[in-house]
Structure formats: C-alpha cells, structure tokens
Simulated assay, not measured.
Amino acid sequence: MIVGWQSSTRMFADLVLDALAMAIWQRSRHGQDLAGLIHHSDRGVQYRAIRYTEELDRALAVTSVGSRGDSYDNAMAEALNSLYKHELPADVD
C-alpha cells in the first residue's frame, strides 16, 4: 500500500521529505508501528539528502533501493507513475 507520495516537476529534498512525513502520519494515525515502514526508491539524488536520511533513521524505516540498471526492480512503481505522467502536458515545467 502506498502511504506517502508527492508529485512535482522538480526533484528536491523537500519533495521526498513531504512524502515521508505523509507516510509517517498515515501509519501513526492507524496506530501502526513505524519500524516496519519500508521506503522504496530509485537512486535519485533527492533520496541522498542528509535531512532525508536522518528522517528515515528517526522513523526506523527500512530502505529498499533497486539494483543499478534493472528497470524491473521499479516496474510497478514506474507503471503507476506513468499513469498520471501521461495526463500532464509535455510542456509543464
């Protein structure tokens, strides 16, 4: 289940921090233990921000990064992303 997300045309650390905050809030409001939260991502630079890794540590989240050059690792996430990306005009900045 996707518990945190955010969308933008730019890749900033605040973008992924907002998504993580949403995931933490969603899990907390349902009384779920955050220690089981799995964070799936690609190797994007926004996921390597110090503030972001500190927040993951604070939440006791487990990180899961796909292997380099293997598009099948993220196939389900990319398929979902393509659904709403298809709806956006090509010139959106």
Rank of each mutant, 00 (worst) to 15 (best):
M1C: 07
I2M: 06
V3P: 04
V3F: 07
G4D: 12
W5Y: 09
Q6E: 12
S7M: 12
S7G: 10
S8Q: 04
T9K: 01
T9P: 01
M11Y: 02
A13V: 12
L15C: 04
L17A: 01
L17T: 04
A19D: 06
L20C: 05
A23C: 07
A23I: 02
R27A: 05
R29Y: 07
G31I: 10
D33H: 01
I38N: 03
S41F: 03
D42E: 08
R43C: 03
R43T: 05
G44Q: 11
Q46M: 13
Y47H: 03
R51S: 02
T53W: 03
E54A: 14
E54V: 05
E54Y: 01
E54F: 02
L56M: 04
D57Q: 05
R58M: 05
V62A: 06
T63D: 09
T63I: 13
S64D: 06
S64R: 09
G66L: 09
D70R: 14
Y72V: 10
Y72F: 13
N74T: 12
M76C: 14
M76S: 13
M76K: 11
E78V: 10
A79V: 09
L80R: 10
L83E: 15
L88W: 15
P89C: 00
A90S: 03
A90V: 05
D91L: 04
D91I: 02
V92Y: 06
D93M: 00
